[in-house]
Design a binder for these strands. Structure first.
Lengths: 333, 333
DNA sequence: TTGAAAGCGCTAACAG
DNA sequence: CTGTTAGCGCTTTCAA
């Protein structure tokens, strides 16, 4: 028994009167020992309350079974303020644990990661930015990584995503009459879901001959959002497509503050969903995401990569539309 | 250079033409070497892109710098559905990282933890249950743990919490007239914040001579909640105190479904806050929590424990009241 | 079938 | 001031 208070494999060997190898084999079920020997060892291990030292084991295998989870933040948002991320983090955790690995919650910051010498077996990166520094860091450190969304300037490596392009195109097809002008309000285009959503909107606009105008807000500030809305009005757009749920909520609040009727004067749709959007007044039509499914697929893909199983470079999950009061399906009136 | 592709301390020593110790010292800044030697080693390390192997280092120190975060769930709730937990998880992560440790997100399940041989330096456990199995597991494994809230049947070990007892007492004092009957609706009393809140309510009731009745729902089901509300009406309670924000939202929804006016017929207050409560109709008066502050204190306390610094057994943070429309301050009308 | 011995990469005693 | 050596606890050849 060592100072630590914990039995080592040596103690077990001595106690059972066998060699180290025998203990190791007996516990890991490797070599084919006689049942009698094995039982004796198991018994000894039990008695001594022996638990193999994970670090020592890791030193040999150069793996501790740790998988990093990194979520790239957006403007002034954190995991706790964005339903989608909290949901992703939860489900990723579960998927990682189900595979016998442990999830480590890491910040989207290469400098911090460099200083934090944690030996990761792999990583899941949510919503990478363009030229994502963390993704680059993982590559340089040889940490296998699967992303949800992709680095638009550097889209190598396996990734998983909602099919934002098709989703937005379909959303517009079902909520906007051909010919109506649509204003797209965005915050930044550093993430692939924004780029893909815009592409979907353009594709739709082309196909039905609608006009599409884009406004980019610098922040969620009232002044910024009001400025965008002013331009929307000048263009006489009948529909506003918000890049995401938080922006949609904000736009709705400012529209109401300005006395505009939704959906009477202008309709509002959001390219991402969140529980909040059901409870606004009026509730907001949006595209539903699948954090649980994406998390599972991403984890599955990562473990395939780690085990050398060939994987698909990209996997897209179709989105669904949640019709709500801010923009009913065309034809519904 | 090893098969791994990564330089080891040996490679650096060979490259710099010095011994292993010299490299180790030069890099860790231990022994006082001549600057020339040190620079030579640093140079070599740089050239070879040497990064110390964290697992090997961990084997010596028996520590990898991992801190577990465990959140005990409640009825059908998960991290992503409860604002408070998502917020706690985020802030705990940050606090742990700021101390040079890495946060591991673990499930509240002793069986899973047993199978997951992750060498934790310590753990933060949020909202332990009574006779908490994970807390017991950590103790048996000698993992130093600080809890947010306490195990009510086994309150040993340092813990941090909101001052729920004083908070609830104050909340009632400011929103209920002496003599009015208050109905407390709970879901379970396995967590300390519920027990403490009830105690606060009883203290208040005693001091002003009010009647207090408690109803326990088995779940969030409509039928369960309606049953509780039926009893509230029979008791002619003028105020309902909900154990937490989710229950408060649910109660409000069922009150409205039954045609009751809030705050006209009955007032509603919640013992915990969440952003949602600002947006219900009417908004709900509640006690504000401090996930950020608790996370920081808990992390600070854990690291003190790990460093052998004496710590306080319990630390309480005073709560504040968010007055909203469901229950204005008495005197306001 | 079992055991002895050699590491995994690093650090800390202890010599020189 | 620098180098040699002995482990940390485990797994994995390779002999016996």
């Amino acid at each position: 028994m060592k100072r630590n208070g914990r039995a080592t494999i040596r103690d077990v060997a001595a106690f059972a009167g066998v060699s180290l190898t025998t203990v190791s084999d007996a516990l890991s079920g490797k070599g084919r020992l006689p049942d009698a020997t094995r039982d004796k060892v198991l018994e000894a291990a039990q008695q001594l309350n022996y638990r193999p030292n994970a670090i020592a084991r890791g030193l040999r295998s150069q793996s501790l079974g740790l998988v990093g989870i990194v979520i790239a933040p957006a403007e002034a948002a954190t995991l706790s303020s964005v339903w989608y991320w909290a949901s992703i983090a939860t489900h990723m955790s579960e998927a990682i644990l189900a595979n016998g690995f442990a999830p480590v919650l890491l910040p989207h910051n290469a400098a911090t990661l460099t200083k934090l010498p944690i030996p990761l077996d792999g990583a899941l990166l949510v919503d990478p930015l363009d030229d994502d520094e963390v993704l680059a860091y993982f590559r340089s450190e040889n940490v296998r990584t699967v992303t949800i969304g992709r680095d638009i300037r550097n889209p190598q490596g396996p990734w998983v995503d909602e099919d934002n392009e098709a989703g937005v195109a379909e959303l517009l097809r079902l909520t906007v009459k051909p010919g109506e002008t649509v204003a797209v309000v965005t915050l930044s285009a550093r993430k692939s879901y924004v780029v893909d959503g815009l592409r979907g909107a353009e594709r739709w606009a082309h196909s039905v001959g609608s006009k599409l105008v884009e406004y980019r807000c610098k922040s969620f500030d009232d002044a910024e959002v009001d400025q965008a809305l002013l331009q929307v009005r000048q263009e006489r757009a009948k529909v506003i497509l918000a890049q995401n749920d938080r922006l949609a909520s904000k736009l709705l609040a400012r529209l109401k503050a300005a006395g505009a009727e939704v959906p009477g004067d202008v309709r509002l749709i959001s390219a991402t969903d969140a529980p909040d959007l059901q409870h606004t007044e009026p509730s907001i039509t949006s595209l539903k995401q699948h954090p649980e499914r994406l998390s599972e697929i991403a984890a599955r893909t990562l473990f395939d990569v780690l085990h050398g199983v060939p994987t698909q470079e990209r996997q897209l999950v179709p989105m669904e539309i949640a019709f709500r009061r801010s923009a009913p399906a065309v034809g519904d009136g």
